[in-house]
Amino acid sequence: MSNHLKDIILKIWRQNGPQDSGRFETYKVDEISDEASFLEMLDYLNEQLITDGKEAIVFDHDCREGICGTCSLMINGQAHGPERSTATCQLHMRKFSSGAEIVIEPWRAAAFPIIKDLMVDRSAFDRIIESGGFITSVTGGAPDANLIPIPKPVADSAMDSAACIGCGACVAACPNGAANLFTSAKIAHLNLLPQGQAERYKRAESMIEKMDEYFGSCTNHGECEAACPKEISIDVIALANADYRKAKLKNRKFISRI
């Protein structure tokens, strides 16, 4: 059942630090089981490099089950590689064949500066959440959980948006380096729910304006949706756009003078 792939050529971006200019380096993996995950293939390569006394390739990864959002990588020009709705950590070598040449690059965006090799800094996402991606609720003061019934379709669609893992593939895949899918997914998650209504418009306003400080603009290519490992739909972008417009209008009338 398990086959072995032979002679995989890897062109991997190496960059010593943020200031370094970086370059592609070519490596060869002589043989690897097709049961191996893509990251295990890189682990294996790193083992070889360490054995040869060379520095291991730096790349972000953690849970390896597609939920933590730590892994990244532009693989052959696609964020998270060639398998749809799959994060790099769940991509397996059986998607490739012997003799394949695989190009691996870090995600590139001004807001995602390269730390080293394939690892980038995605803190800009945290800044967006900090600006309004929450529902203010003081610990201990919450009413009974069943006090507000939430229609199942609403809960389901909030959940669809909340599934975002914050990996940054949307930004990486976007030809404009825009973060609208990430930002809008969080806006949609919280703005759809009854609990989120009190801060709905303030949230949309501050998150979108914070996003503007770091990222490009959405021109509706749809690449983000195609790259998203959680298949979050660009419908959420439309929702956030509408809420932002309403926020601008409503806020001036009622709450912006605070």
């Binding site: 590139r108 030809p175 490009g216 749809g222």
Partner: peptide, 15 residues
């Protein structure tokens, strides 16, 4: 927003 372009060829999916 992307001052350094991708150095390898992009493979667009839906754009």
């Amino acid at each position: 927003a992307r001052p350094v372009k991708y150095q390898s060829e992009r493979d667009y999916q839906v754009a």
